[in-house]
Amino acid sequence: MRFAILVFPASNCDHDAYHAVRHVLGEEGVFVWHNETSLDGFDAVIIPGGFSYGDYLRSGAIARFSPIMEAVRGFVEDGKPVIGICNGFQILVEAGLLPGALISNQSLRFVSKMVYLKPESNSSLFTKNLDCSQTYRMPIAHQAGNYVVGPAELEKLEQHGQVAFRYATPDGEIIPEANPNGSVANIAGVLNRGKNVLGLMPHPERAAEATVGSDDGLAIFRSIAGYD
């Protein structure tokens, strides 16, 4: 499978994503500069973490106007998979490809630590290799990961199974104490209605090998690549 890894000015998890895809998974990964206009020949897109455009105005607000984002829009319309991680998630909500918004953490602090994620379902192409009775351990590192969405919109997300992951305790309990940033309903990741766009604040690409503390994130990339 051929993954496009988008690179914006100040993306900084692009190489982690490349490493996970190329060296751990053994698939093809290609860096695509944000001024490019085509995603022809790619099977999946990764929008990596970082601080695109210095987080000016709002995280992701400027990057969404990069030329490559028009191609991403077309890619999504074609039903192909797009995963946005951390800043990539912020870019996707700013672009309107995912619902809601991401605002400052409730604590106003940058939070960098390991968290536990509970997958809500394994019916999407991103989660089909995941076990919903388990939790997945991976790091977060962000200042603006507080997911907000209005009550009516939240109900719709829940109804359509668009909540992909929630912050949980190691045992899988969804409680306020397990919420690192104040996100509504402990939401850590959401899907679009077509279920081919996933945005999440935690970093599965930084949890792709046991040697770095966890390989729980690999299941997401394996799912995208269509492994059993």
Binding site: I103, S104, N105, Q106, S107, L108, N146, V148, G182
Partner: peptide
Amino acid sequence: TPKEGILDPQGLT
């Protein structure tokens, strides 16, 4: 300004 009903952690602090 943050919309009505949107949490404003800076403002609260």
